[in-house]
Design a protein around this nucleic acid. Structure first.
Length: 501
RNA sequence: GCGGGCAUAGUUUAGUGGUAAAACCCCAGCCUUCCAAGCUGGUGUCCUCGGUUCGAUCCCGAGUGCCCGCACCA
């Protein structure tokens, strides 16, 4: 475990040293849960987003794009359930320092012949009714009461009155009076639109991009020449006031999502088929951009843990240095969202299906992932330390498609103007196609190591043979460190094949 | 939110109640014909604010951030 944490620390410090990720507002002492992406980070992010957009939108006939605003009419969040449901009332036990979600903590009053013996409390579970019954009987026995125990009515803690809450014992200690009242955490950031800061101007920073898609469903259907099944894709920032941001950029308060809402006809077999298809598509996409296959996994949400409207949800997970966690959630959401927006907006969102000759609210499969989590997984997969001739080498083995810098171009030595001139010319040509760097400082080996740490897949050196002979260059492979001679045309083809597979 | 630990150069880390060090990295120059060679020079609000003190990077308090554990993650 310790060495695994060190691995994350090494990645964090490399990220800073090479300009991938900085802590936000660092010169002011930082701000918990926010990050800035430096010169290399912004390129890597862009490449990840571009790869997703290319593969999920441009190369598919059934998915189109959208870019909706971050701040939207707050009624959207009422309809989606985020204003009411995106809160977790929490209860703390002051004595045991345990914390519970108020809606998962249940309590019931123990009544014997109408007389109250106090309350019992327990955490939500499948057999909580019988556990509570047992507790109540113990209580009755302890107080040696005769008479009939009345049926227990279990209620979640947040639905009790203030006075009732005071009587509930802590499930940890069994003592009354150590639980705090439920405290609300709404994870949505609030802001105000317009000059006046009264209630009517209150708006939210979106906690997910998905609702912007649902809100535009009618626009897309009316203008996009689409037929179910089809998807709407969006990449954009989202904001959640997380209680505890942790693990570097894995859980932050400002993050970027890549989401698709894939609309399908109603019907049990339809969603089952599409859900499985998307799981397969998404999982193979992750390995196509260079995530270590052995680190990828799936986690199927158990039926009793699903949101009430969801049919199924499968996470694609990644084994990070700090544990296996969700990269992407692929949810079958039924037609919950469109139903809600139709109801709250008063506008019909029904779709007329020409094949089935019927009107319906389409159901939806939602593959939703975080750019930043993918970024971190790409970084973790790429990071490695190996040894060359007894020397340690840190190398980021990015897939060429996502590598922030595609090639380094070097004159073998810098005090020979002929070499410098040819190298600069080649640099300018490659620059028009890709993000490449020119470097002439230090010995050639140092320059190779320098680009290894930035994850540059190709090192191209202009030497004397390039001037005199056939004009070929030395092309050095980052992973194997092997060198091959290539002409300029061969080089362009070689790079293009690997960068755009 | 709770408990514990930590905060010194870009990075990793020494160190001290009396003007702060090393290694590596980075930048410039010289040199260099293929995997971190060498030489010269350069780069510092000791996290912030307050207190104690003649004097605080060091001691004390508060804050902020990071790490670990618990809890949480519609």
């Amino acid at each position: 475990m310790k060495s695994e944490n060190n691995l994350l620390e090494e990645i964090v410090s490399l990220s800073k040293r090479k300009g991938f990720v900085f802590q936000s507002s660092e010169i002011y002492g930082g701000l918990n849960g926010f990050f800035d992406y430096g010169p290399l980070g912004v390129e890597l992010r862009k490449n990840i987003k571009d790869a997703w957009w290319e593969d999920m939108v441009r190369r598919r006939d059934d998915v189109i794009g959208l870019d909706s605003s971050i701040i939207m009419n707050p009624k959207i969040w009422k309809a989606s359930g985020h204003i009411d449901g995106f809160t977790d009332p929490m209860v703390d036990c002051k004595e045991s320092k345990m914390r519970y979600r108020a809606d998962q903590l249940f309590a019931a009053e123990v009544l014997v012949d109408g007389e109250s013996l106090g309350w019992v409390s327990l955490l939500e579970s499948e057999n909580m009714q019988s556990v509570a019954q047992e507790q109540a009987e113990n209580k009755k026995r302890k107080e040696s009461k005769q008479g009939e125990l009345q049926d227990l009515i279990l209620k979640p803690y947040d639905e009790l009155t203030d006075n009732e809450q005071l009587l509930v014992p802590s499930p940890a200690t069994g003592k009354v009076g150590s639980l705090t009242p439920p405290r609300e955490f709404n994870m949505m950031f609030e802001t105000h639109v317009g000059a006046l800061r009264d209630g009517s101007s209150k708006c939210y920073l979106r906690p997910e991009t998905a609702q912007g898609i649902f809100a535009n469903f009618k626009n897309i259907v009316d203008t996009g020449r689409v037929k179910v099944p089809f998807g709407i894709a969006q990449i954009g920032k989202a904001f959640r006031n997380e209680i505890t941001p942790r693990n570097f950029i894995f859980r932050s308060r400002e993050f970027e999502q890549m989401e698709i809402e894939y609309f399908i006809p109603p019907g049990e077999s339809e969603w089952q088929r599409h859900h499985q298809e998307w799981i397969n598509v998404r999982k193979s996409w992750f390995s196509s951009i260079g995530l270590t296959k052995d680190c990828l996994g799936e986690e199927v949400h158990p039926q009793n843990k699903l949101a009430h409207y969801a049919r199924a949800c499968t996470d694609i997970t990644y084994k990070f240095p700090f544990g296996e966690h969700e990269l992407e959630g692929i949810a079958a959401r039924g037609n919950f969202d469109l139903t809600q927006h139709q109801e709250h907006s008063g506008k019909s969102l029904e779709y007329f299906d020409e094949n089935l000759k019927e009107k319906y609210l389409p159901h939806v499969i939602e593959p939703s992932l975080g750019v930043d989590r993918t970024f971190l997984a790409v970084l973790c997969s790429a990071f490695s330390v190996d040894e060359i001739d007894g020397e340690k080498r840190t190398v980021l083995r990015f897939h060429p498609r996502v590598a922030p810098i595609k090639a380094g171009i070097f004159p073998l030595v810098k005090n020979k103007p002929e070499l410098v001139e040819v190298a600069k010319k080649l640099y300018e040509r490659l620059q028009r196609k890709w993000n490449v760097v020119y470097d002439q400082s230090g010995a050639i080996g140092r320059r190779y190591r320098r680009i290894d740490e930035s994850g540059v897949p190709f090192g191209i050196t202009v030497d004397f043979e390039s001037l005199e002979g056939d004009g070929s260059f030395t092309v050095r492979d980052r992973d194997s460190t092997e060198q091959v001679r290539m002409s300029e045309e061969e080089l362009l083809l070689h790079m293009d094949e690997r960068i755009n597979p």
